[in-house]
Design a protein around this nucleic acid. Structure first.
Length: 215
DNA sequence: ATATCGATTATCT
DNA sequence: GATAATCGATATG
């Protein structure tokens, strides 16, 4: 795999438009599977295929950060679609979401796992993982905190970033990959409204986190 | 293989 | 003062 091939492949990733995100987060979540998250900082480019996401709804979803109304933390969710909502959790981890639905509605999608595509050495460095020996890449980007660390996502750097623009340091695109085997399960790690089927995964993909089937 | 637990802090009650 | 959309380490079957 030479450098030119990588350059050409990244050039063929097309950003998703604003309209893609201006919809019900359940539709956005399902269709985000198979798309590509791109981090560009200077000449370095990281990419990963989205293999696991969760939808958080504007209404009737006590698990959503927007459930109690707009605050300074969650205000991006209430703004225009296609922007990064990044929050800090458990004193340790950042989690990346994209705002959905038109301005004023607070649906969102949480990125839970990626399949690393390009920039694996850089991701491993960011994660503090040795990837020189026998390669187990599953700990690189399988989990919301892990993928954020691998891509250098922080609230300070990325909250509010426009994910629909190729000029952004962080954006989402399509490369022609067609996802198969989409499975819906209950969401992970929440205590409220835990029974709703709002987690979307590419079944069988080794980079999906946690358990893989609905109960 | 699953279970439990500590880390560490922004945010909200 | 309690909790949290998590992770990694350690303990136990």
């Amino acid at each position: 795999m030479n450098k030119l091939a990588s350059e050409l492949r990244s050039a063929s990733i097309r950003p998703l438009g604003r309209a893609f995100f201006a919809r019900d987060p359940r539709c956005v979540a399902r269709e985000l599977l198979g798309k590509v998250l791109v981090r560009r900082s200077g000449r370095k480019i990281l990419t990963g295929r989205i293999v696991e996401v969760e939808a958080y709804l504007d209404e009737d979803d006590p698990a959503a950060h927007s459930a109690a109304g707009r605050t300074s933390r969650n205000s991006v969710l209430f703004g225009p679609p296609g922007h990064a909502y990044v929050y800090f959790i458990y004193g340790n981890h950042y989690c990346l979401n994209v705002s959905c639905e038109p301005d004023g509605r607070a649906g969102g999608v949480l990125f839970r796992a990626l399949e690393p595509l390009r920039g694996i050495e850089e991701m491993a460095r960011a994660r503090g993982i040795d990837v020189s020996g026998p390669r187990d890449l599953t700990k690189l980007t399988s989990g919301p905190g892990r993928l954020s660390e691998a891509f250098g996502v922080t609230r300070e750097r990325d909250n509010g970033c426009d994910l629909t623009s190729r000029r952004s340091s962080l954006w989402i695109g399509a490369d022609g990959f067609v996802s198969k085997n989409v499975v819906v399960t209950t969401r992970i790690g929440i205590t409220k409204a835990a029974e709703h089927p709002l987690r979307y995964v590419l079944a069988g993909n080794p980079f999906v986190s946690g358990r893989k089937m609905s109960s």
